[in-house]
Structures are given as C-alpha cells and as structure tokens.
Amino acid sequence: MTQHNTAGISLPSDKSPRLTPEQQLVAEYYQHQAMLCQWFATLLSAELDSTTLQAYMAGDAAPLLEELALLPELTESVHALEHAITGLSVLEQPRLELAADFASLFLSDARHSSAPYASLYLDEGRFNGPSAQRMQQRLAAAGYAVDEQFKEPTDHVAIMLDYLAESYRRLALDPTPEAEANVARFVSGELASWLPALATRARQTDTASQFYPALLALLAAYIEA
C-alpha cells in the first residue's frame, strides 16, 4: 500500500549495540503493534482473496485473536469477530458475498456506506479535507508515498494504519520520548477520534456477513485501548 522513497529501514545488525532486557521488551512490543496495525490495514485495503479466506475459515487467525482476547477491553470484540468468521461457513458463496459486503461498506456512495475516510468524520463530511492534507504531510515527512495501484485518498483508514505500523517499526528501533509522543498524538487525534463512528456505521449496514462490521469494531476497540 505504501512504498518507501528511500531504501527503507533495516533492523539492527549483529554489530549494533546489545539491547538491555528492558530495551528488548520495548522493541518487541512496538514490533508487535506494527504487526497488528499491518494486519488491520491489509484486511481493510482490499477484498479477501480465496486463499486468505480459506485460511481464515480453517482457523489460521485463531492464535492472533486468542492473544488479543487476553486484553479485557478487546475480549467482547474479539469474540464477535470469531463468531463472524465461524459464520462464513454457512454462506453459499463466502468469497463473493464478502466481496459484496466490502463494496457496500467501503466503495459505495459515502452517504449510504461506511466510507473509510477520516475527512468524512472529522471535516464536516468533506473529502480530501484537512485530515487528508495532514496525512499527506506525514507521509512525505516519513519518506514514503501511497502505492499508485491503491487509488485512494491519503486519509483512507488502511493508509493511516499502514503509516501507524511503520511508525511503530521506527519506534522499535529508536523509542525516543518525542517519537512516542508523536505516535500517541496520531493515534488519539487522527484515529481514535473517528473510528468508533466508522464502526457504528458499519454495524448499521445490511451485510451478508458480520465479518467487516466485527473487524471494524475490534479495530476501534484496539485503537482506543
């Protein structure tokens, strides 16, 4: 979804200073948060392909969801998503019906869908408003741009989560107080401020499966937590 304008960020090599146990825990924590944000971003950037869908229906997501469910703030949302995944097996054509859900939720007219753009919720319903402009500035400052094949405004939830994942990767390498504060401000001001409303819209939309509404509810709870 995003492409680096530079060579990217490399993990510390064997020649890097050894981390203390506390530093190692911090690095692992931020790497894990990056993985979770990337997971959400991937699921919300495009329809599930057949291989991924079959993997989910076979239980491949269970370990990750079980881990998330250990957080009391996420338990209810995790169970709802688990129930939605289980329910995919009763659909006649799961992939096609999920694709239709994706289209009706995220690709339809914003007045009648759960349009996944921050501007719609934070800028009085104006697309490509200040929220998108701020996001574009962040992407430029971070040194990467949106992949040309992902033809969405920069305030699309998947792009914002992808950016957050990269921010966590950078924190894993250099967790300065300033960088941590910047990420915290982004999470609270640019994501937590509108994701609950997105999740509510999705829940109110008629869909064949509860997969995407449950996924968005879990995302909103995760960002809040």
Rank of each mutant, 00 (worst) to 15 (best):
M1D: 06
T2H: 14
N5D: 09
N5T: 10
T6Q: 11
A7G: 10
G8S: 05
L11I: 12
D14V: 13
S16K: 08
S16N: 10
R18L: 11
Q23N: 07
Q24C: 06
L25Y: 08
Q31N: 12
H32E: 07
Q33A: 06
A34G: 03
Q38C: 10
W39S: 04
F40Q: 00
L44V: 01
A46G: 08
E47F: 02
L48H: 00
D49M: 06
T51E: 14
T51L: 14
T52I: 11
T52M: 14
L53C: 03
L53A: 01
L53M: 07
Q54A: 14
Q54K: 12
Y56L: 15
M57D: 02
A61E: 14
A61N: 08
A62G: 07
P63R: 03
L64I: 15
E67Y: 14
L70N: 14
L70M: 14
P72C: 04
S77L: 05
S77C: 10
V78I: 03
E82C: 09
H83I: 13
A84G: 04
I85K: 00
T86P: 07
T86G: 11
L88A: 00
L91S: 03
L96V: 13
L96C: 08
L96K: 09
E97Q: 12
A100E: 11
A100D: 12
D101F: 00
L105S: 01
F106L: 02
L107H: 09
R111P: 09
S113A: 11
P116N: 02
S119Y: 00
L120P: 03
Y121G: 01
E124Q: 04
G129M: 00
R134W: 05
M135K: 06
L139T: 03
A141W: 05
A142S: 12
G143S: 04
Y144A: 11
A145E: 15
D147K: 15
D147N: 15
E148G: 07
Q149V: 14
T154E: 14
V157W: 03
M160L: 08
L161C: 02
D162M: 12
Y163W: 08
E166H: 10
Y168T: 04
L173H: 10
P177V: 03
E178H: 11
E180R: 15
V183C: 14
E190T: 07
L195W: 03
P196T: 04
A197V: 04
A202E: 01
Q204G: 07
Y212M: 00
Y212F: 01
L215N: 00
A217C: 10
A221Q: 03
E224Q: 15
